[in-house]
Design a binder for these strands. Structure first.
Length: 679
DNA sequence: GCGGATCAC
DNA sequence: AATGGTGATCCGC
């Protein structure tokens, strides 16, 4: 209620130059910030900086960004979202004015859905998940190995992009995913100098393996999300070790973190234990860094209720703003306004949001990889020859990638980003599956020609381009043939590819040996999929895969359950927020947090809160106090570092050297608009 | 099926 | 010296 007016703001969106005439006469900062700073991904809304510093940082960021093409594009996108919102609001208005019987029906339907979900939650009791998240992982490794960095603001990355920043830097407003030159300025303005450290993927991978080794003791089927985080199903471990109690969980979380710190010679981790994957993940972020949070079943609902919707993995900046336009800020709000959401969101989104708000995990099967992609940013140019060569390089890189994974692709998509940051994609089906650079290149070049043709007539030059990329999809496994150098294609032991290869050999063994040139397999049946799932834990298959983050070969032990429905969001309306305000989360009911280890965190206190259900007397183990709200004041800023790509690229370059090899593109013979023919 | 968007890391 | 790269999913055409 209320709030409605906010969306009415004129925003002057439509005319690009006039509103952005900000160049000189444009809006002054004070006003501008109100309108725009929500556009940044990294407005710090967490603790760590006091308000003054925060405003100062935001001003600096705004000043450095306001005239950039990047920022102007962000404004454009934001304006589009506002239009979406207006449409949505109109839709909702129509609903409000609809026949009472209709609304009654909708309400009953929602009630039914909520009841079903409640039942589902009930049925899933008793399973315990842990999420472990390394604190500022890359940065922590670098600082450990060079203690002189300890008290300086440090960022892993470069002037172009920051992957991870330490907590000293965060105090100046430096964030992961922030361009390095802005971070540098933020520090400089406050008399400090940001130290950049180039990353070393190999090292991080090694550390990650160390962490994994420690964790596998608690759950041999653990799933590494990325180098710096992992999900564990602790249900069995807790039972088998007689630790299935609050105290037990506290103990396990503490032990996990201590063992990690010991094994990594000083790196710290944060952990969350909860009756679900999603809640565990949220919990691990709750007391970062070097902290832990345990959520008991009886506290789960209360914990979720007070949580900001932004904490739900899958609700990002845009989703948050859309929900905010509906006046929905917390998970409790989601449930209270379930009918509204039903009307405003797609079925998928509605399901997702309601489930998430109740703390119910989505069904997540780690599916087979569906695409390979490669994209490069460079200085914007119209030089066609340069661009075509870039495309060739990318095609070669992808071909290598495909080959090393024993995959072929039958469909490519060209991606083009112009100097004004607008992105276009062009699909190009191929006539057959391929892993040859020539083929990929031919398809991409054809798509590129098409792009040029449609974006510049004879009189007007095509726009300058700052990024080119290719995505290969429609994948099939390939075994048995010969590789690029004529050697037999054999998948590395321990990989899914290896598994399938063995299977294929067995099958082939009964009749015709594996003499068949190329065999393509598509995995479709569930049984096979399950087998693949189960092999992930092969401890012997660390395999230094050249690919850092991915290669999901780790299974996911999920309780059965049929409900499909996956993860994803998509809601209706945003609003021109002036966000920033939310001082982190209130910690609801009795989520007990257990410090342990050095832990510089101040003890958090909680006031009794009207936590709905009577508070069963909870064993107050050591210190953890439960009760109600917690204020997160502390100087600690949470933000887990988004993993990078910059580093990946560095590593790739180092490892691969370079793809060279010119050779001309074998022509896309048959033309015919739709599918490019390959010989 | 395509192209645009959003999200996580 | 000018805001990254990879993979996935969803939605509206």
């Amino acid at each position: 209620m209320a709030k409605e007016g906010a969306a009415e703001q004129p925003t002057s969106s439509r005319q690009p130059p006039s509103s952005t005439a900000a160049a000189d006469g444009g809006p002054l900062y004070g006003q501008a910030e109100k309108d725009y700073h929500h556009l940044f991904n990294f407005t710090n809304n967490k603790a760590g900086m006091d308000k003054v510093d925060r405003e100062k940082a935001n001003q600096t960021i705004y000043e450095m960004s306001k005239n950039s093409s990047y920022f102007k594009n962000e404004q454009r996108k934001d304006d589009n979202r506002k239009e979406d919102i207006d449409r949505m609001k109109a839709h909702l208005e129509a609903y409000r004015n609809s026949q009472p019987e209709m609304r009654l029906k909708a309400e009953q339907s929602v009630r039914g859905v909520l009841q079903r979900l409640e039942k589902e939650r009930e049925s899933k009791r008793g399973s315990w998940w842990c999420h472990v998240d390394m604190d500022m992982f890359y940065c922590a490794v670098e600082i450990r190995d060079d203690p002189s960095l300890k008290d300086k603001p440090v960022a892993v990355g470069g002037p172009g992009m920051i992957c991870t920043a330490n907590y000293v830097a965060r105090r100046y407003g430096v964030r992961a995913a922030m361009p390095g030159f802005i971070g540098k300025k933020l520090c400089a303005d406050q008399g400090a100098e940001l130290v950049f450290v180039g990353g070393n993927m190999q090292k991080y991978q090694a550390e990650s393996m160390t962490v994994r080794r420690v964790l596998s003791e608690f759950d041999p089927h653990l799933k590494m999300g990325s180098l710096d985080e992992a999900f564990l199903n602790l249900t069995d471990y807790l039972k088998e070790n007689d630790l299935d109690s609050h105290e037990g969980r506290v103990k396990v979380a503490t032990e996990i973190r201590e063992k990690i710190t010991e094994a990594t010679r000083g790196l710290t981790a944060s952990a969350g234990i909860a009756p679900g994957r999603m809640m565990a993940k949220i919990a691990s972020d709750f007391n970062k860094p070097n902290g832990q949070t345990i959520i008991e079943e009886r506290d789960a609902a209360g914990f979720m209720d007070s949580l900001s919707v932004r904490k739900i993995p899958g609700v990002g900046k845009v989703g948050e703003h859309k929900l905010e336009a509906l006046n929905i800020k917390t998970c409790r709000d989601i449930l209270d306004n379930a009918v509204l959401i039903t009307q405003a969101c797609s079925d998928k989104s509605t399901q997702f949001l309601l489930r998430a708000a109740m703390g119910i995990d989505g069904e997540g099967r780690a599916s087979e990889r569906k695409s390979f992609s490669c994209e490069r940013t460079f200085r914007a140019t119209q030089d066609r020859k340069f661009l075509e060569e870039k495309l060739r390089d990318i095609a070669e890189s992808l071909a290598e990638d495909l080959k090393s994974h024993f995959m072929r692709s039958r469909h490519i998509t060209l991606k083009v980003k112009t100097a004004d940051f607008k992105v276009k994609q062009l699909a190009m089906p191929l006539s057959r599956s391929t892993d040859e650079a020539d083929d990929i290149d031919a398809g991409a070049q054809r798509a590129f020609s098409k792009y040029i043709d449609t974006h510049g007539d004879d009189t007007k030059a095509p726009p300058a381009i700052r990024l080119l990329g290719i995505k290969c999809a429609n994948l099939t496994h390939v075994f048995g043939g010969t590789g690029p150098d004529g050697e037999e294609r054999e998948a590395p032991k321990g990989t899914i590819d290896y598994f399938l290869q063995q299977q294929q050999k067995q099958k082939g063994g009964k009749g015709k040996a594996s003499e068949v040139g190329d065999i393509s397999i598509e995995i479709e049946d569930d049984e096979q999929m399950d087998q693949i799932d189960q092999m992930g834990d092969n401890a012997d298959a660390p395999a230094g895969d050249d690919h850092p983050g991915n290669q999901l070969l780790l299974p996911d032990i999920i309780d059965l359950e049929e409900w499909e429905e996956d993860v994803d969001v998509n809601h209706p309306q945003p609003q021109p927020p002036s966000c920033s305000s939310s001082p982190c989360q209130p910690a609801p009911s009795s989520a007990s947090l257990q410090p342990s280890l050095p832990l510089p965190l101040p003890q958090k206190r909680q006031l009794p809160q009207s936590s709905a259900a009577a508070q069963p007397k909870q064993p107050a183990p050591k210190r953890g106090k439960k009760g109600g709200k917690r204020n997160q004041d502390a100087a600690t800023v949470c933000v887990s570092g988004p993993m990078d790509a910059l580093l990946k690229r560095m590593a790739d370059r180092k490892a691969a050297g370079g793809g060279g090899g010119g050779s001309s593109a074998a022509g896309g013979g048959g033309v015919d608009g739709e599918c490019i023919e390959l010989d």
